[in-house]
Design a binder for these strands. Structure first.
Lengths: 220, 220
DNA sequence: ACCTGAACACCGTTCAAGT
DNA sequence: ACCTGAACACCGTTCAAGT
């Protein structure tokens, strides 16, 4: 039977790399990175676990596929919009949003190396904005590293704050006696509540971008 | 038989929380966080896997025990030494050293919440230095978050760079044709080699500490 | 080319039992 | 109190086989 009328559908739209990665991300969002298994993923996709090995060499490469989906959401605005510095800032603000939107998957961003073409293409576009802004390669490397370090580190910390209650802090103070035992922690913790984290993130970005702007204007 | 002469030794010095965590850290350092298993850890300690459950409720709490060992190595200098700002800086420089000394375990620092007493005590001592420097609680929260974010994020990135070759970069450019395809990445990557990372880290810390000093001197 | 199914060598954790 | 040993419900991945 060729392309006849009532020909049975190919499983469910056939498997492909992107669909597999998308469902993996959904499972991670729902149950956490550790809970992702090839078997559960297969069950969600209506397929045996081993079917995925035709599309990804192993689980590590599947996680690289998930990373590709994440960085898509951090894409800087096109070169036709805003100034280069503003585009760079948008990109890193998008990364913070990523931490909030995918708290369980976000750790892939700072822990997996950039190795697949889509991720390298993203990196290329981001670095082009540094060149457009007027930075040479050494300056771009410095500020990229400082920005990426701050944004990913702050993102992970913010995830810790948001993990449990909506107004949680990254520190767990169990009972009231802790106020006497940890007075400095007790007074600082209210200032690290979820509602205050965006202002702190902005504060950190302002600090770094002020240095970038002043370097570009030759004030150093 | 009570305390007689030739009484057989208690297994091997008896198990305790610290010894278990220390051997867990050794296994993580050797084979990675994912490779740590209760069974392998038991084998190293000459004991069944289940013996550890008498000292830690589960594997997650064991990892909190490993975190306690890590933060010991980041301890700020005592209040009798240096200025408060210098003591804070030393503490975060120690954290970077931690990333290099324990690259496979370092991710525990930004991903696990501060919940056990030894970790909270460390946090209390670190925050006391912010108070000593003259920061109020809101300022301490801001700069702590910015510093911790930058240091942990930069630490994770540096681990990626050091992962493979001694002069590796966090990006993998497979073949020469990539230079044409990713020109900006190609020119920036040499500036992110391992030998340059300490200078970039120092650059980032300088930037943040300059802002802290200027806020303290009332220039804002 | 794409998927299945059995098999291998592992996991964390429970429970009941030993001393 | 501290540890063992069997058992349960899982893992990632290999391999040979199906279509």
């Amino acid at each position: 039977m060729k392309l006849g009328k009532g020909r049975p559908e190919r499983r469910r739209d056939a498997l492909n790399r992107r669909a597999i990665a998308q469902h993996a991300l959904m499972l991670i969002d729902a149950d956490g990175l550790e809970a992702l298994s090839m078997r559960k993923l297969g069950a969600v996709l209506g397929v045996e676990a081993m079917a995925m090995y035709h599309h990804y060499r192993n689980k590590a490469q599947l996680l690289d596929g998930v990373l590709e989906l994440l960085i898509e959401e951090a894409e800087p605005p096109p070169a036709s919009q805003l100034t280069p510095l503003q585009r760079i800032r948008r990109c890193f603000e998008n990364m913070r949003r990523l931490a909030i939107a995918h708290p369980q998957a976000f750790v892939l961003l700072p822990t997996r190396r950039f190795r697949t073409p889509p991720v390298l293409e993203f990196y290329e576009r981001l670095l082009q904005n540094f060149a457009d802004a007027g930075f040479n390669a050494a300056q771009a490397a410095r500020y990229f590293r400082v920005l990426a370090g701050f944004v990913t580190g702050a993102g992970l910390a913010e995830i810790g704050s948001r993990a449990q209650q909506p107004d949680a802090t990254p520190v767990i103070l169990e009972n009231f006696s802790d106020a006497a035992r940890f007075p400095r922690v007790t007074e600082v913790v209210p200032h690290l509540r979820v509602a205050k984290l965006e202002a702190i993130f902005t504060f950190g970005l302002d600090l770094i971008f002020a240095a970038m702007a002043s370097e570009l204007s030759g004030e150093r």
